[in-house]
Every structure is written in structure tokens, then in C-alpha cells.
Amino acid sequence: MAVQLNHTIVAAHDKWASAQFLTEILGLTPPRSAGVFVAVQLDNDVTLDFAEPGADHIRCQHLAFLVSEDDFDAAFARIRERELMYWADPRQRFPGEINTHDGGRGVYFLDPNGHALELITRPYGSGESA
């Protein structure tokens, strides 16, 4: 059997808010209750299980999503409609910009719990340098 990522847990003070935010930005099926988790199903059979943390502090997680050019356009339009801050880089040095790494496009933004979300249209190392 090939090894595949099945799910990962994402800590969130408000698991429904974070899960709903992600599905709305990415145009995914609405989240569903899954026991103590709120599950977001991705198209590659990976589930993000949002859960309330055992402590007050949540460590920022970085979640990167490979999307098509059309899906990038749609998600980026939603980011701009909501007037969310976005950056071309993970260190937030280039606000209001996107990147063109590997001949594609990429953008970083934050979810309601401060997790760093990234959208890319080309996998890293797959093409031209920006």
C-alpha cells in the first residue's frame, strides 16, 4: 500500500469559524461535524480536522494549497472581497502582492485563528524562478 496523508488536526479556538472560512475562500463543500472535530474535505481525499486546543495558546500552522489557475482567481477574488490582508511571502514583507514562483502564482493570508494559509498554482521547484 502506498503511504498517503489521510487527515491532520488544525487547532482553532472557534473550529466552526475557521473551517467555514476555509471552505468559503476555497469554494469547497461546507464543513461537517465529525465527532469532536469539524472536518473539511479536500479534493485529494485529505481531511483537515479542526479542533479546539487543550490550552489557550494556539501555535500558528502553515497550510499550503495547490490550486488551479481558475480556482486561484476565484479564491483570490474572495480574499479581496473580504478585504483580507495578503502577502507575496510567508514573512509578510510584501503586503498587497502575490508572487510568481515557478511560473505560477502564490499568495499568503491568515485565517480567523492566525494560521498562515497559502495558495499556489505550481508546486515549488516545478518551473521558472520568479
Score class of each variant (00 low, 15 high):
M1Y: 13
A2G: 04
A2K: 14
V3R: 11
V3K: 10
Q4F: 08
L5G: 10
H7S: 15
I9G: 02
V10H: 01
V10R: 01
A11V: 00
H13N: 11
K15R: 15
K15S: 00
W16G: 00
W16A: 01
S18W: 00
S18Y: 00
A19V: 00
F21I: 00
L22Y: 15
L22K: 05
T23D: 02
I25G: 08
L26E: 07
L26D: 09
L28G: 03
T29S: 07
T29W: 03
T29N: 10
P30Y: 05
P31F: 01
P31T: 03
S33I: 06
S33N: 08
A34G: 02
A34E: 15
G35S: 05
F37T: 08
V38M: 05
D43T: 14
D43Q: 13
D43R: 14
D45M: 12
V46K: 09
L48Y: 07
A51K: 09
E52R: 12
P53H: 02
A55E: 14
A55M: 08
A55I: 08
D56C: 01
H57A: 10
H57K: 14
R59H: 12
C60N: 05
C60M: 14
Q61D: 11
H62K: 07
H62M: 10
A64S: 15
F65D: 14
L66K: 10
D73Y: 00
A75V: 05
F76L: 12
R80K: 15
R80T: 13
E81R: 11
E81K: 11
R82E: 03
R82D: 06
R82Q: 13
D89Y: 13
D89C: 01
D89W: 13
D89N: 06
P90V: 09
P90W: 09
R91W: 14
R93W: 08
R93P: 01
G96A: 05
G96Q: 06
I98K: 07
I98F: 12
T100Y: 14
T100D: 08
D102E: 12
G103N: 12
G103Q: 10
G104N: 02
G104V: 03
R105A: 04
G106I: 06
V107R: 06
Y108G: 01
F109E: 10
F109P: 12
L110A: 10
D111F: 03
P112T: 08
N113V: 03
N113G: 14
G114S: 08
G114Y: 03
H115A: 10
A116S: 10
L119Q: 04
I120Y: 04
I120H: 05
T121H: 03
R122V: 07
R122D: 04
P123Q: 03
P123T: 06
Y124H: 09
G125K: 09
S126A: 15
S126L: 09
S126N: 12
G127I: 11
G127C: 10
E128P: 02
S129G: 15
S129V: 14
